[in-house]
Every structure is written in C-alpha cells, then in structure tokens.
C-alpha cells in the first residue's frame, strides 16, 4: 500500500518536473545559442559535459541523501580529502589507478557510514552531523598536508579528467555508468522503493517492516562514495591537487538537486531531475561567461535562480 501511495506522489510531482525542468534547460540552450551560435558546436558541448561530470557525480549521491530527508554538507570536503589521499600513494604508473580508486571508495564509504550512523543511531540532525564531518575531514587533511599537498599522481588521471574515447569525454562515460546503475537501484529495484518509502514517512516505513535506519545509512554511504569518486575525476580535470579541490560543491550539489525537483522534505524526486539540475547549473555558469559578465555574477544569478525555482516547486507541491 505504502509503495503504491508513494508512487502516486511521485507521479504528481513528475508532471510538474516534466514541464519546468526541460523548459529551463531548453530555454538556457536557446539563449546561449542565440548569443553565440558556436555554443552548439560539438567541441563546446563536449567541453560543457566534461565540466559538468564531476558535479553531476556528486549530485547523484546528494540526491539519495535528500530523498531520505537528509543533507550531506561533507561532500566537498570529502572530494578534496580523496584527492589528497590519492597523492599519498605517490604512484607514477597507471597500474596504480585501480588501487587508488579502491582506497578512495573504501575511505569514503567509512565516512558515509559514520555520517549515517550519527544521523540514524544518535538522531543527530543531518545538517550538523555532516557539518562536523566536513570540519573534521578538513582538519585531518590540512594536518596531513601541512597546508600544501605534495606527492604525485599517475599520468592516467589527466586522461580520466579531460580525455575522450571516440569523441565522448571519459568522465561522462564514467558518469553514465554510475547513472545507469544508480537509476536501476533507485527506480527499478525494491531497495529503491524502500528509499522512497523511508523518505516519504520513516515511521510508516518502520511499520511495514523496512529497516529505515539501514536504508538511510546506505544512502549516506552512496553519497560519500560518489563524492570520493567525483573528487578523483575533478583532480583529473583541474590537473592539480590542492586542499580545496571541489570547494563549494556541497552547496552546488544541493542547489542542483533542488533545481532538479528533489524535495528537501524527502521522498520526492528522480535521478533524471537531479542530473538535469546539475546540467542547468553548469549551463548557467557558461551563459554568464558567454554574456561577458564578470565571473562573480554567476553567484548572483545562481542565488536568484535557486530561490525562484524552489518557490515554484513548493507552490506546485501544495496540497
């Protein structure tokens, strides 16, 4: 019964998302193309996608956490930490890349586990638990690097960040793999149903026999692991490791989720929406540059758009 009713809620939300999100996306693309016809060139599209991929990876994870009524502020700090962790191997051969990825996933999963445990078992508010985690990770990272990261990364990282296979950016391929898997997990598997039910109403989830705590913890683990991986791809894209890799991504990820129609009250939204939200955000940044406005104007436009879109969504979801 619960599964059915939460699907119903999804549908009503769906109709609205189906109109406004693609509309915003096409509107932006149209504006950009009119202003600068070369915007639609293959090269520029590839560039934009390459830029969007690390953010989109984080957004996918963040979406899971927001769906279970949470919030993950530790993602940006974790991105930088995974980048610093990667340099700790001081690897020179590309053969080490899988090892680096495995270590990152392991450490990130532990961070997600702690976040999830604090939120579920100790009933700490997600905002505070992940905020504290953000500060702790930042401290540990700076202490390890003493302010300036050293060590080196294998050459192959650059390929992961900016390389292309048959014209398709490598990091977009990675994003597609993660996206397909997570879409299956959230929208097709029974576990995904449990996530929606837990997010929609944790008490009734417990009553129908779902281990709501475990579902929530798992969502935090997904978010952290995605952030860790995104950190590695972002390092590949930027080309250097510093202590602030991914700074501001926690806010951008939350904003992208809200733009994509994922409700902060939990239980509503789709991964398609989240990914589109990320793309819209990156397009906004691009359009600002195309318009020749100062980079700081991105902040102003971002601020206005978050409030306006969030207001539209909250109106549309009023009973």
């Amino acid at each position: 019964m619960n599964a059915i009713s939460s699907v119903g809620i999804l549908r009503t939300n769906f109709q609205f998302c189906q109109v406004i999100i693609p509309l915003a996306l096409f509107g932006l693309i149209a504006v950009a193309t009119i202003l600068k016809p070369s915007f639609l060139s293959l090269n520029n599209i590839q560039d934009i996608l390459t830029q969007a991929a690390p953010l989109a990876l984080v957004v996918l994870g963040q979406a899971f956490v927001i769906l279970v009524r949470g919030l993950d502020l530790s993602v940006a700090s974790l991105m930088a930490s995974s980048a610093v962790l990667a340099t700790a191997f001081n690897a020179t051969s590309d053969a080490m890349i899988p090892v680096i990825f495995a270590a990152t996933v392991l450490v990130s999963a532990c961070v997600g586990l702690i976040n999830g445990m604090l939120v579920t078992k100790r009933n700490v508010s997600p905002f505070l638990a992940t905020l504290a985690m953000m500060i702790v990770l930042q401290g540990v990272r700076f202490y390890y690097t003493q302010g300036a990261p050293y060590g080196s990364l294998p050459e192959g990282f650059r390929f992961l960040g900016v390389g292309r296979i048959a014209g398709i950016p490598v990091n977009i391929c990675a994003f597609c793999v993660c996206f397909c898997f997570l879409c299956w997990l959230l929208h097709k598997s029974s576990f995904g149903r449990m996530i929606y039910i837990t997010g929609g109403n944790p008490t009734s989830a417990k009553l129908v026999g779902i281990n709501a705590d475990r579902v929530t913890i798992f969502c935090y683990v997904i978010s952290s692991v995605m952030a860790g991986i995104a950190g590695l791809f972002l390092v590949g894209f930027v080309g250097t490791v510093d202590n602030w890799v991914g700074r501001g991504y926690e806010i951008d990820a939350i904003v992208a989720c809200v733009l994509g129609g994922i409700m902060l009250t939990g239980g509503k939204g789709t991964l398609w929406g989240a990914a589109t939200g990320a793309l819209i955000l990156i397009l906004i940044f691009n359009v600002v540059i195309i318009l020749g406005l100062p980079v700081q104007a991105q902040l102003i436009i971002k601020g206005i758009i978050i409030i306006v879109i969030a207001a539209l969504f909250s109106r549309a979801n009023e009973p």
Partner: peptide
C-alpha cells in the same frame, strides 16, 4: 514561498556575495 529557510538564506548569501565581489 514556503521554501526551506536553508535554500532561501543560501540564495540571499549567494546574491550578496556576488554583489560584493563585483
């Protein structure tokens, strides 16, 4: 608007910061 204060104040913060930095 009924938007979560987290989002509203984040938005205002972004607008103010952008304006100051310009």
């Amino acid at each position: 608007t009924g938007v979560h204060p987290l989002i509203v104040t984040l938005g205002t913060a972004s607008i103010l910061n952008g304006t100051v930095l310009i």
